[in-house]
């Protein structure tokens, strides 16, 4: 490991979640597994999406949802804990630039997302015939989705002063965005109005593009999804970097 502000902060953030892996990795894998067991048991045999059995359709959605939620959880919970306990000073006192700060926290979130996503995939792919038609899309969307939600987590973690404010952010923004994104269904099966609404949800594109990597078919073109995800990432990174540069709620 090369020592420096960025690499040490990245190492510390990864070590932090790894030390409590039962909460940060095992628990979300189990949750995803429970979703799969319940939904596939109820719907298997009744539903086929894009010509694949429902369980096979559901698995990539669950994997990506886990990537996104855990990337968000990693940055947001790390920052709010550090702020509330006051140990954020350990990161603010050394010569670490706001760019290094951003890159380290977001990359650690991506790592957590990928670790949990891989865990969910390993735990669930026994249950259905899964293909990897265009694997590059899988990797690209997992990385971008993790970075987008990791960045959003930095914003939430910096903005929130208390744990319940962070919980509100999670319950009223992150959960609806991920649950109403086509994780559990194809949006083509929705009434036209809700199809329209879903097209305004950026998380829909991340999940749809990710799923395209498995089956080679999707609701939207993967290139469109890539463009939407790229725009989201650019916008959120800009906002986050601006907050960090100004020292918003970190440096008085």
């Amino acid at each position: 490991m090369r020592y420096g502000g960025f690499s040490t902060l990245l190492y510390k953030e990864v070590l932090r979640f790894w030390k409590v892996a039962s909460q940060t990795v095992a628990a979300p894998v189990l949750t995803a597994l429970l979703y799969l067991l319940i939904f596939s048991h109820v719907l298997e045999g009744h539903v086929q999406v894009h010509g694949v059995p429902y369980a096979a359709f559901l698995i990539p959605g669950l994997v990506m949802m886990s990537v996104l939620q855990n990337a968000f959880a990693n940055t947001s919970s790390s920052l709010i804990q550090s702020k509330v306990t006051g140990n954020i000073v350990f990161v603010l006192l050394p010569p670490i630039s706001y760019l290094e700060f951003f890159a380290a926290y977001v990359l650690a979130a991506v790592v957590r997302g990928l670790v949990v996503g891989t865990g969910v995939l390993l735990a669930t792919f026994w249950f259905a015939p899964l293909t990897f038609a265009e694997p590059w899309w899988i990797l690209i969307f997992a990385l971008m989705g993790g970075a987008i939600l990791g960045s959003l987590g930095v914003i939430a973690g910096i903005w929130a002063d208390k744990f319940d404010q962070l919980a509100a952010f999670q319950n009223f923004l992150i959960m609806p965005l991920t649950f109403l994104s086509g994780v559990f269904y194809s949006i083509n099966s929705l009434p036209p109005f809700w199809q329209q609404v879903s097209h305004w949800n950026p998380v829909f594109y991340m999940i749809d593009g990710f799923r395209h990597g498995f089956f080679g078919v999707s609701d939207a073109s993967p290139w469109l999804s890539l463009a939407v995800a790229g725009a989201c990432l650019a916008l959120l990174a800009m906002i986050t970097l601006n907050l960090l540069k100004r020292g918003y709620k970190l440096r008085a």
């Binding site: 502000g5 040490t8 902060l9 070590l15 409590v20 550090s82 140990n87 000073v89 350990f90 670490i96």
Partner: peptide
């Protein structure tokens, strides 16, 4: 203040790395 995730030595090594 302290970081509850780490040992004393880990905390000091991490702090060194930041510098």
């Amino acid at each position: 203040v302290f970081d509850p995730f780490f040992t004393v030595r880990e905390s000091l090594k991490i702090q060194s790395g930041y510098f």
